[in-house]
Structure formats: structure tokens, C-alpha cells
Amino acid sequence: MSTVRLIGHEESFEVRYADERPSVYFYFDDENPLRRQLQGLYTKDKALEAARAFARQERKGCPSPELLCAWKVVESWKQAHNLNFLSPRMAQDLAQKIEQALLTLRP
């Protein structure tokens, strides 16, 4: 079982791990619907719901090695391309696609 904490911030909810893994952020914007749509943000309620679901999933057990690898690929890609603000939804979708590709390569 993985130890995680859910922390509320002014513009996001953070799922923080007890170990060395980087936190996962769920950003929201309730003030500007156009900005929310363009940047792939959640409403505050949806961000909280997504963060809780993610934390609950993480508490159930460690993610697969493929998913951990996928998150590392996404994080290094963000840094290499100077994309400090890639929406959590986009990062999660990208990591899941990489995970599925890695799983298909498994013998």
C-alpha cells in the first residue's frame, strides 16, 4: 500500500507521495471557462474528484512498472520541451498511452 496525501492549494489539488516520486497536480479554474477549455483544466469540483480517485487508486497499491516508466517519460519530455504547464489530464492520457504500448511489448 502506497502512502499518499491529498493537499489543497489555491489553484490545484496535489497528490503527494511519502517516497521520492514527484507529486501529481490537478489544476482547476472556475473563473474563466475559455481558459479552462484551452488549457485542459478542471472545474474545482472535478479536480477534487479526479485527485481523490487518483489518490485512492495509488493507496490500493503501487502502479505497474510500465506506468512508472511512462510517467518518467512524460516528465522528462515536459522538461526537455520546457512545458512546465502540461495539464494533468493530458499528462495522464499520454502516460496511459505509453503504458499500453509497453504492455503490448511484454512477452
Rank of each mutant, 00 (worst) to 15 (best):
Met1Ile: 06
Thr3Trp: 07
Val4Gly: 00
Arg5Tyr: 07
Leu6Thr: 00
Ile7Cys: 10
Ile7Asn: 09
Ile7Phe: 04
Gly8His: 10
Glu10Asp: 15
Glu10Cys: 10
Glu11His: 05
Glu11Cys: 15
Glu11Lys: 15
Glu11Trp: 09
Glu11Phe: 14
Ser12Lys: 03
Ser12His: 08
Phe13Val: 04
Phe13Ala: 00
Glu14Pro: 04
Val15His: 02
Val15Asn: 04
Tyr17Asp: 01
Ala18Leu: 10
Glu20Tyr: 09
Glu20Leu: 11
Arg21His: 14
Arg21Ser: 08
Ser23Asn: 08
Val24Gln: 02
Tyr25Asp: 05
Tyr25Met: 08
Tyr27Trp: 02
Tyr27Gly: 04
Phe28Trp: 02
Asp29Glu: 04
Asp30Asn: 12
Asp30Val: 09
Asn32Val: 11
Asn32His: 09
Asn32Ile: 12
Asn32Met: 12
Asn32Tyr: 15
Asn32Cys: 14
Pro33Met: 07
Leu34Glu: 14
Arg35Gly: 11
Arg35Asp: 11
Leu38Cys: 07
Leu38Trp: 10
Gln39Glu: 14
Gln39Trp: 07
Gln39Thr: 06
Gly40Asp: 14
Gly40Arg: 11
Leu41Cys: 06
Leu41Ser: 08
Tyr42Ser: 02
Thr43Leu: 07
Lys44His: 12
Asp45Pro: 00
Lys46Asn: 02
Lys46Arg: 07
Lys46Ile: 09
Lys46Leu: 12
Ala47Phe: 04
Leu48Ser: 01
Leu48Lys: 05
Glu49Tyr: 00
Ala50Arg: 11
Arg52Thr: 09
Ala53Ser: 15
Phe54Tyr: 15
Phe54Ile: 11
Phe54Gly: 05
Ala55Cys: 06
Arg56Cys: 06
Arg56Asn: 11
Gln57Pro: 02
Gln57Lys: 03
Gln57Leu: 11
Glu58Gly: 10
Gly61Leu: 08
Gly61Tyr: 02
Gly61Gln: 06
Cys62Asn: 15
Cys62Trp: 05
Pro63Lys: 13
Pro63Asp: 06
Pro65Phe: 01
Glu66Ala: 15
Leu68Tyr: 03
Leu68Asn: 08
Cys69Gln: 04
Cys69Pro: 00
Ala70His: 00
Ala70Asp: 00
Trp71Asn: 03
Val74Pro: 04
Glu75Pro: 01
Glu75Met: 07
Ser76Gln: 10
Trp77Leu: 13
Trp77Met: 09
Gln79Arg: 08
Gln79Glu: 06
Ala80Trp: 05
His81Asp: 09
His81Gln: 08
Asn82Ser: 15
Asn82His: 08
Asn82Val: 07
Leu83Trp: 04
Leu83His: 05
Leu83Ser: 13
Leu83Tyr: 04
Asn84Leu: 04
Leu86Asp: 13
Pro88Ile: 04
Arg89Phe: 06
Met90Lys: 12
Ala91Arg: 03
Gln92Pro: 01
Asp93Pro: 00
Leu94Arg: 01
Ala95Lys: 01
Ala95Val: 10
Gln96Asp: 13
Gln96Ile: 13
Gln96Phe: 11
Lys97Ile: 09
Ile98Asn: 05
Glu99Val: 02
Gln100Pro: 02
Ala101His: 13
Ala101Glu: 14
Leu102Arg: 13
Leu103Thr: 07
Leu105Val: 08
Arg106Ser: 07
